[in-house]
Design a binder for these strands. Structure first.
Lengths: 283, 283
DNA sequence: ACGTATAGATGAGTTTAAATCATCTATACT
DNA sequence: AGTATAGATGATTTAAACTCATCTATACGT
């Protein structure tokens, strides 16, 4: 390379600010350094870039020309650089409100403690997840996800508020909160399979449906009720004695949480987050 | 600055060429230097830019993104830089074919001897003189040129081929080559004023007109004739004994050679050329 | 008009970043 | 399997970048 890029950067700044002193401040250098850079540039190019009128400077025609190019060029580089840098120091996740509320948000602090150089940003809803560097965690049927993208295969079980007496399935009618997904292409939760696994086919069960698992769980806790829901969302609540399990066995489902193109996130923050969340979800 | 521009340049080259080795060749560095730069970049940004598959590398998604920005940014800077650099090492002049043929081209070698770091390019005719960094030397009326732009005020005289007998103005009819400019807004050469200055108002003179001074001069040399023309173009020919002056006195004219916005050429090559040509034209 | 404060220039000296060298690893090719 | 090639890694050297001390010119206040 003929001319040094740092000299060009110094020139660009001086041209934009109209002063070596201001350029020096901007680049955390001394005015002397800027002066050296620019005179070095001028002698290498055999061109005067600034008119010197004593202590006042102004761009020459050639200087203006070069300043335009360097400003635009560096600006283009800087803006993408900044974006990439952000991506390296923040994990931006978007997912269902249930996973966000029950798992991500409660564990957010823990993640940031373990990764002090990475901040975690959570968003839910129909946000633009095609935007670069946002990690979408989707809930769906295993058949639509690549194997390598799955971070949690979902099981279901019945949970109740902590301390409530276990229900007697055979003797009385039982109200069970469950989910009917807003997204109609998803199958219903595997209640029939669960009843069979636990030998409860004959039970008298009334279903009350919510469109998000989150609501059923909250309702169960609020009115000492029972909820048939995914184990992922309840693990933490069970551990912290806000929910309890009974003597029933969980049943596997066709649902899973997955991250589309999981391997395409090459920033360290995304890698760390993905390893961490997989650990969390699978104990 | 967080990240070094040289590291970005190394990355840009490696990304474009698809190989550290090729990037090293392009930048006249060792592959080790490229490797250091890129891993430095990656750790500063907390992002992987290349996949390493043993000795083969490929860009990550983030790498592609950054590569696009750096390539475009540096390309923009480089292209203007190259243009400016050319402007610093070459004086590109455009002027009338007469001045080019009689003055510039014969002296071109001399200029390049005196300024070995500057090459001189001469063009004539209707070329795009608005193109940046081309120095136009125009011939015209002093009233249309700024005083500071004038590099030569033009005088006129009569010249003849070297060795011919001086004409006897009063005794015989005399054929005189002269110029009628193609550009009709220019006045005719000051023949009447010249005749008066030399007390030859009564002479019997036949005019033969060319649309460029160059042709009249050549014709005079070829057929041992006489030409009434500008002193600028003939100085060199008189010195080298190809033309001769007689006992006549030159007459000032309203013509001049000038360079529009002479002070706006801030490249060293242009400055040196302009000083040189002014010297040449005024002895 | 004069004195002072400020911006930049210049040259020598110092510091830090960048490049190389030597060595090692993994993989592609014969 | 053996060799040649691309890249990684760590120590060392080199050169570029930066600062400091000093100087000049000019803008500004009184």
């Amino acid at each position: 390379m003929q001319v040094s890029l740092q000299a060009l950067k110094a020139f660009e700044s001086a041209a934009r600010r109209g002063s070596f002193k201001l350029a020096a401040e901007e680049l955390s250098l001394t005015p002397t350094a800027i002066s050296h850079h620019i005179s070095n540039l001028e002698s290498r190019l055999n061109v005067n870039l600034f008119h010197r009128q004593g202590r006042r400077i102004s761009l020459t025609g050639t200087g203006k020309r070069l300043a335009k190019a360097t400003s635009e060029g560096f600006r283009k580089i800087d803006s993408v650089l900044e974006e990439v840098m952000k991506a390296g120091t923040a994990a931006r996740v978007t997912t269902t409100s249930s996973l966000a509320a029950m798992v991500l948000i409660p564990a957010q602090h823990e993640f940031e403690q373990a990764n002090p150089d990475i901040s975690m940003e959570i968003s839910t809803g129909e946000s633009v997840d095609s935007q670069s560097y946002i990690i979408p965690i989707r809930f769906g049927d295993v058949s639509v996800a690549k194997d390598s993208d799955v971070i949690r295969y979902e099981s279901f079980n019945v949970f109740g508020a902590y301390g409530m007496t276990p229900p007697s399935w055979s003797n009385e009618p039982i109200t069970l909160f469950t989910t009917e997904w807003k997204n109609k292409s998803l199958p219903d939760p595997p209640l029939a399979a669960w009843l069979e696994t636990n030998g409860l086919e004959g039970a008298d069960i009334k279903l009350k449906k919510f469109d998000q698992e989150l609501f059923g769980i909250q309702q169960a806790m609020a009115e000492n009720g029972l909820v048939f829901c995914s184990t992922t969302l309840t693990t933490r609540l069970v551990k912290s004695n806000l929910l309890q399990q009974f003597e029933t066995r969980p049943v596997k489902s066709d649902f899973c949480y997955y991250v589309p193109n999981k391997d395409s996130f090459e920033t360290r923050s995304a890698d760390r987050f993905l390893n961490w969340i997989e650990d969390i979800l699978n104990q």
